[in-house]
Computed example of a mutant assay.
Amino acid sequence: MKRGSFGLGYALRLGASRIAYETRVYFRQGDTIFFTFLFPVVLLGIFSVAFQGMGNVGAGPDGSGGISQAAYYLPGMISAGILLSGVQNLGVDIAVERGDGTLKRLGGTPLPVLSYFIGKMGQVLVTSAAQILILLLLARFAFGVELPTTAEAWLTFAWIYLLGIVTSAILGIAISRLPRSGKSATAVVIPPLLVLQFISGVYLPFNNLPDWLQTVASVFPLKWIAQGMRAVFLPETFESAEAGGSWNLAGVAIALGIWLVAGLVVSRLTFRWIRKDG
């Protein structure tokens, strides 16, 4: 049959089947599992143990109050996991598939582009949700972190997570055009994302950064994802430490929405089954 002769229902069914395929392939790659899936989990464990001797974060002058190091780093690790699962995972994966000819071969089959992306997006949602579940279980049962108990907090978590992971995945598709070969994909994609993690309030307190660096970080989505997650998991007493003294969840939604639209436009304009220069 000719490409495009299948209906939307067929594309959706095929896309759903590709979610399982893409997820299996994902978990067969050892380097991907460690540097994308387990990396935030490992870092949460390391930071929680290494810094516990420093006492609670936000404690009073007498050392009382505050929250544990594990509780403080949990929202940052969740945010980093969202970035890695979406941007790094798809940015590298699609670039490799373009470089090794996978996209060219798929381009010669009746596979709809929609089905391909449903598979990729579904894999990101499945693996990122599993990653966050592990982070929450580790924080709760290994380090005694008190998780939110209100429906409002979990609803806030749900929309920030969904908006953040979809935006990250779309941006991953968009930047997959940057590497000129599959071999250079990790070198092109990973370093900028590592820098973003350091300047976006994931590993370092955001309010401790110079004002100009805070301004730079505020341009990118990770800062807003991390800020939203802090609003969910940190006590209200930490709100005053945010830029402007507020969680600014409206700003989180607007910033991520802008990046989502920008990523969709770039992906639509640049994605090809076969490179024009290849």
Rank of each mutant, 00 (worst) to 15 (best):
L111S: 03
V25Y: 10
K104R: 14
Y203W: 15
G107F: 09
A139F: 10
K223Q: 15
V92H: 01
L138E: 08
G9Q: 11
N89V: 07
L256G: 01
Q227G: 03
Y73C: 03
T167N: 09
W259Y: 13
L204K: 05
G164D: 04
L155V: 02
Q197P: 15
S176C: 11
T23V: 15
S181R: 04
S246Y: 14
Q123P: 11
W159I: 14
F143L: 09
I160P: 00
I190F: 11
T270W: 05
A139W: 01
I78E: 01
S79K: 06
Q29P: 06
Y161F: 05
A243I: 15
R275K: 10
L38E: 05
I173N: 00
I67A: 04
I19Q: 00
W212H: 15
L44C: 12
R140C: 12
S218Q: 03
A187Q: 15
L193K: 07
F143T: 07
A50N: 09
I254F: 06
L155D: 02
I173D: 02
I33K: 03
F37R: 05
I175S: 01
V219M: 09
T23M: 11
G81D: 06
V202T: 08
V166R: 07
G60P: 03
T149A: 12
V113N: 09
V202I: 05
A217G: 02
P221S: 09
G81E: 00
V189G: 08
Q214I: 15
G7C: 05
P210Y: 14
A71V: 02
Q52E: 12
S168R: 00
L171Y: 10
A71G: 06
F117H: 13
G263E: 00
R98N: 12
